[in-house]
Design a protein around this nucleic acid. Structure first.
Lengths: 346, 346
DNA sequence: TTGTAGGCGTTATCAG
DNA sequence: CTGATAACGCCTACAA
């Protein structure tokens, strides 16, 4: 049983291979009658066109690339699973495949772009972890390689919506703002913030959100803002410092920080009502220990990234097709409120 | 600047395209002099052969497929990052690319095999989560599709090493055995086990390890073995039950279970020395909360999986090449001992 | 050692 | 609306 190809199929049907090709790529150009006959035969034989041959001819691989970031913090990284899964699923639905690659640095990633573009003819890339002065987006734009980013172009922060490339992001600032506001509404007047050192787009954004809520409530922020590298111990340390300055509740830039902070706060104020620490990302850890957290609609983000990218890619061929997806999309996060897991008897 | 190809390169060098091809695929057949000249030109122009064209001719895509399992428990799933990363990196080193795909079930995965084999010409697959009577391995063997599994073929548990396909696994039983033995050596005489319902290969294996240690120490196991579905609450519940039966220490089949169990144990025995619960997988959560856990050498496993698979694939062309990697490899895990994170003042 | 010819499976172009 | 012809870039014969 030799593999069925366009020719073998055409031969067994008594039509030219071109007709079969047309049935697949331009059905409207084929007489309904023969079209049905061919389609039936295709289904019958389980014929699938060869991607390699098609790619050779069309210069399109129907393949998207995405870099797997080095594993740093397993806690915050664990939502990558969800992202990747949603990405792959959406890509599959649109007829694209996803190719993984690794790189140690941004320049390494760019080197991979060149390589993958040349050898595998990738149609586009999905970027994650965009930051100030991102060399990758520059390179891709310059070389006119289609791509979509998960993350705003922080370089043009004054007007990310005017940016030249498609992106999807989650409005982290809105999340921390809501988190802080919620705590304020619960009666807290000194809500602290533990975030990353200034300079990272997402980090600054989250800090700004917290500050907005505090300012809006007429509360002071000067002594309640701590910059720390990510991690559980840093969170605990930060919480201790902030508590000593009077903070009774905290918003954190990550679940790692929040996990440490929450434990410390519980230790310092064992009598206090629960829910005084809110994390970010809604990682499995947060769910496990009952930590409130800002949840990103990461599946939606992934879906949309594929949608824009696919549209971008098809768009050149079909200008003005179906409804076009937003080129720039800022999704609102959701505050997941939890009470610390009590482990009470069943 | 048109893309350089074999022909364009050959033309600009005044040699035939065949010579260039030979320099790449069979350097020894080319006169050193011209070889050097061609190699120089290749480096100069940054020429890279087109995978599509090569694939069309050789029927090899240099592409490996791996299914992304549906996200169930984010906690235990988070080591997938490490696995995937190591896998991609190794594949890259061997000249392979990794293609992702999704499937809801094993039969869905098989359907994807067919599809991907036909359209993308994937050279092989990496399997994860093998289980009793795995239909996937059967299908792949039957269709003579190269693959390597992360996980023993549990169906032929009497002699997995005689199995027809390559696999790499971690000796979970050895891990839980060591965990239990360690607790016993610490003076515990009633070490409980919380694992999954009987029937899963890995789960039964881990339970068996714990039992071996108990039996070896002449301790009873009858009432200290609990079967529960995975999850934090189940762990807490299990711990409560086991504690009521006298257990003073626990070994768990997962970090999820262990997390719940540890919290419950601390609540029940606040005075007790730390370290009475040991989890499995050494997930980021375990590290974060200071939970002892059995750590899998997952990067090593990934590396070896690619090594066997690559050898399997090349082997048909180069019988008797370099040193051959083991077709069946059982890696020992490591017990990571931790004391619960104290969040003490800095 | 090097060059020539043919074809892998597909789509684009242009006749009929 | 259908079919012949010519690539796409590469590799495997075989011939020079």
């Amino acid at each position: 049983m030799p593999k069925t190809t366009l020719v073998s199929l055409a031969a067994s049907l008594g039509v030219s291979r071109q007709t079969v090709s047309n049935v697949i790529n331009a059905p409207h150009r084929v007489k309904p009658e023969t079209r049905m006959r061919v389609q039936h035969a295709i289904a019958e034989s389980g014929y699938r066109p060869s991607a390699a041959a098609r790619q050779l001819r069309t210069r399109r691989s129907m393949n998207l690339g995405i870099r797997l970031m080095p594993v740093v913090d397993g806690i915050n990284g664990s939502i990558l699973d969800r992202f990747l899964h949603a990405l792959t699923e959406s890509a599959q639905d649109e007829g694209y495949r996803l190719t993984l690659f690794c790189a140690e640095s941004d320049s390494g990633e760019i080197r991979q772009y060149e390589e993958l573009l040349k050898v595998a003819d990738l149609d586009g890339f999905v970027l994650t972890g965009t930051h100030y002065g991102d060399a990758r987006t520059e390179w891709l734009l310059e070389h006119e390689v289609p791509f979509a980013a998960f993350g705003r172009p922080w370089s043009s922060v004054e007007d990310p919506f005017g940016s030249g490339h498609p992106w999807v992001d989650v409005d982290g600032g809105a999340g921390t703002e809501q988190a802080a506001r919620t705590l304020i509404e619960q009666g807290h007047t000194a809500v602290g913030f533990i975030g990353w050192p200034a300079g990272s787009g997402a980090g600054d954004d989250r800090r700004a959100g917290w500050k907005r809520a505090m300012v809006a409530a007429g509360l002071a922020t000067d002594t309640l803002d701590i910059q720390a590298d990510d991690g559980v111990p840093a969170g605990a340390q930060g919480a201790e410092r902030l508590a000593s300055r009077g903070a009774t509740a905290l918003v954190c830039a990550s679940d790692s920080l929040a996990l440490g902070a929450a434990a410390k706060m519980r230790q310092l104020f064992p009598e206090q009502a629960s829910g005084t620490v809110i994390g970010f990302d809604d990682t499995p850890v947060a769910a496990a220990v009952g930590l409130s957290s800002v949840s990103q609609p990461i599946e939606d983000a992934a879906r949309h990234i594929i949608a824009v990218l696919a549209h971008e890619l098809a768009g050149t061929n079909f200008p003005g097709g179906e409804e076009v997806p937003e080129r720039h999309l800022l999704l609102p996060p959701t505050l997941i409120q939890r009470t610390p897991y009590s482990f009470s008897s069943s």
